[in-house]
Amino acid sequence: RKEMTAACTPRRRIINLTSVLSLQEEINEQGHEVLREMLHNHSFVGCVNPQWALAQHQTKLYLLNTTKLSEELFYQILIYDFANFGVLRLSEPAPLFDLAMLALDSPESGWTEEDGPKEGLAEYIVEFLKKKAEMLADYFSLEIDEEGNLIGLPLLIDNYVPPLEGLPIFILRLATEVNWDEEKECFESLSKECAMFYSIRKQYISEESTLSGQQSEVPGSIPNSWKWTVEHIVYKALRSHILPPKHFTEDGNILQLANLPDLYKVFERC
């Protein structure tokens, strides 16, 4: 597991931080080997919608929660590849102030007048994250320049770009939802926020969305749709870069829909 690298990086740093090793061990302890084997050997059937997909393993048909699986995938990559990410360069710098204002204007932020003026909160978020810029760049390849612009994001899987519609809320939550006081809790909560931002979430995906850094293989055609990215990038990574937690067998994120021999018997009677 320590050699797990989802995106190509030129050289690998050895990380011996106790906090990170502890988080890696927790993933191992909570892992479910049968689910790992199923995901490793599954045959992708198709997307139901951005949140759900169908896959077959041996004779069984499964309904998989793409949102939760991708979130767990990105969390584990962030923990196992800690401080070893490439950088996704933004085509132009994104001012943190503008991103924070967009987030505060969104109902998702939960902002009320009692929280104070949005401009003041946005300025605080910019200054707060600028103070964390060195650590964010060093460990997470999340790059913020001296003017308070976001200029780079971590490359977690080759050819995958997170849904940038979720970027404003991500920046807001970096400042408000991460435990910045304790090292282990900081790395864990920061990785979880980043994983949620990178995950496939239906509120940020339309039929026209593209999450891939590449064009489709047909010359002159439109960019790959999110469905292509889910199948050929995300579920491909799920084959080798995730140890599913045991609770996925109990919380409805992986559901067995049918045993195909039983279905064949039904059709034979028709």
Rank of each mutant, 00 (worst) to 15 (best):
E37F: 14
E37R: 13
D115E: 02
K68H: 08
K68V: 08
E72Y: 10
S191Y: 06
E182P: 01
P223C: 10
I169R: 03
E33V: 12
I14F: 10
V218K: 04
K60E: 15
I200S: 06
E3N: 09
V126N: 03
R239D: 11
P154I: 00
L136E: 01
L129A: 01
K132Q: 04
L64F: 10
P163I: 09
E146D: 04
Q215V: 06
D158C: 07
F82K: 01
S109D: 13
G166S: 11
W52Y: 04
I79D: 15
E3P: 13
A53N: 01
K192Y: 12
L142Q: 00
S91E: 09
G120P: 15
E119Y: 15
L90H: 00
N41E: 09
A7W: 15
E71K: 07
E114K: 02
K131N: 10
E33G: 07
V87G: 08
L155E: 09
K192F: 13
E193C: 12
E134N: 02
L21N: 02
L61A: 12
M4D: 08
S189V: 11
K265R: 09
H232V: 14
Q76T: 09
Q51T: 07
Q58W: 15
D138L: 09
E134F: 03
E37Y: 14
S221E: 11
T112M: 15
E71V: 07
S212V: 11
V230L: 09
I233E: 12
V266N: 15
H32V: 08
D181C: 04
N84Y: 12
L129G: 01
G166K: 05
Y235Q: 06
L136N: 01
E71M: 06
P10Y: 12
L238N: 01
I169E: 15
S216M: 07
N16W: 15
E146F: 12
P244R: 08
Y124C: 12
R36Y: 13
L174F: 00
A237M: 08
K132S: 05
G213N: 06
Q76P: 00
N179F: 07
L142D: 00
N49S: 11
K227H: 04
C47M: 06
L90G: 00
L96Q: 00
L136F: 08
S199M: 08
I151D: 11
A175F: 12
K184M: 09
N224S: 11
P10C: 14
S106A: 07
F82W: 02
S216F: 07
E134M: 04
Y75S: 12
T9Q: 09
P223S: 09
C270H: 10
L156K: 00
I242P: 15
W226A: 06
F248N: 14
K192N: 07
S22F: 14
E250H: 13
K2T: 13
S106D: 11
E29W: 15
L174H: 00
N65A: 02
P93D: 03
I125C: 12
G252Q: 06
K118V: 15
H40C: 10
S43V: 09
V234I: 05
P245L: 14
L64N: 03
F187Y: 02
L23P: 15
E33R: 14
S191W: 03
Y139D: 05
H40E: 08
N49P: 01
N179G: 03
F128D: 01
T9N: 11
C186A: 02
E193P: 00
P261A: 04
K2L: 13
Y80A: 03
S109N: 04
E188V: 08
P245W: 15
G148V: 02
L96W: 00
I27R: 09
P117T: 09
S19I: 15
A103P: 00
F267P: 05
A122C: 14
Y75L: 12
E134G: 03
L69A: 09
C194I: 13
M196Y: 12
E127P: 01
F267H: 05
R201V: 12
E123T: 02
F248C: 12
K60G: 12
R239A: 12
I144K: 01
L142V: 04
L243R: 07
P163S: 08
I79G: 14
G46S: 02
Y62T: 13
N253K: 05
D181N: 03
A175P: 02
Q76M: 15
K236Y: 14
V126R: 02
D181I: 10
I205K: 04
G148P: 01
W226K: 09
R11T: 13
K130V: 14
F44C: 04
V87E: 07
T249K: 04
Q76D: 13
R239P: 07
E3M: 11
L69R: 00
E165C: 07
E177R: 01
I222Q: 07
L142W: 02
M38N: 06
I222H: 09
A7C: 10
T5A: 08
N84K: 06
G120K: 02
I151M: 08
K2W: 14
F140Q: 02
L90F: 12
I222V: 05
L238V: 08
K60R: 09
H32C: 10
F140E: 01
E37T: 11
S109V: 15
R1T: 09
P50I: 06
D262W: 15
E71S: 08
E147H: 06
G31L: 09
S43H: 05
I242L: 07
F267A: 02
V230N: 06
F140K: 01
S221A: 08
S225D: 05
E143C: 09
T67F: 09
M4Y: 14
H241R: 08
I254W: 14
N65E: 10
Q51Y: 10
K2A: 12
D105E: 13
I157F: 08
E165A: 03
E217C: 07
E127L: 13
T229D: 08
N84E: 09
Q215M: 09
Y198S: 02
L211F: 07
N224E: 07
F44S: 04
A55D: 00
S109Y: 14
S109A: 12
R1V: 12
M135F: 02
F170S: 00
W226T: 06
T5P: 10
A7D: 13
N28E: 13
V87W: 11
V45R: 02
H42L: 11
L96Y: 00
T9V: 06
Q256Y: 15
P162K: 00
M135E: 03
A55W: 13
L243T: 08
D98Y: 13
F267Q: 02
Y62F: 04
E33H: 13
Y139T: 06
E113C: 03
L23A: 13
F85H: 12
E268T: 08
I77Q: 14
L150F: 04
S225N: 05
I15S: 07
I144M: 08
E127F: 15
E193R: 03
Q24M: 12
M135P: 04
I15L: 08
C186Y: 02
P168C: 10
E250K: 04
R13N: 10
Y235H: 13
R1M: 14
T5K: 10
P162S: 00
Q214W: 12
L167V: 03
H247C: 05
V34Y: 14
L61F: 02
R239C: 14
S43T: 06
I27A: 13
G213K: 06
S189N: 04
T67R: 11
I77D: 03
A53G: 12
T176C: 02
T18F: 15
V20T: 11
E92H: 06
R239H: 13
L96N: 00
I79T: 11
S106Y: 04
E123A: 10
F248V: 11
S191L: 02
F44I: 12
E71Y: 04
S43K: 06
V34S: 08
H40R: 09
V126F: 15
D158I: 05
D115H: 15
E177I: 14
V266H: 15
E127A: 03
A122R: 00
S240V: 09
F128H: 02
Y139E: 09
I77A: 14
K2Q: 12
E183V: 02
L238S: 11
V266I: 14
I222G: 05
Y235M: 08
R239E: 14
A94Y: 08
V126Y: 13
P162L: 00
E134V: 04
D181S: 03
E134A: 03
Q56P: 00
E114M: 14
E146A: 04
A100F: 15
G46C: 03
E217R: 10
I79Y: 15
H247E: 05
M4R: 06
F267S: 01
D138P: 05
T112H: 11
P154L: 00
L54Q: 12
P162C: 01
P245Q: 10
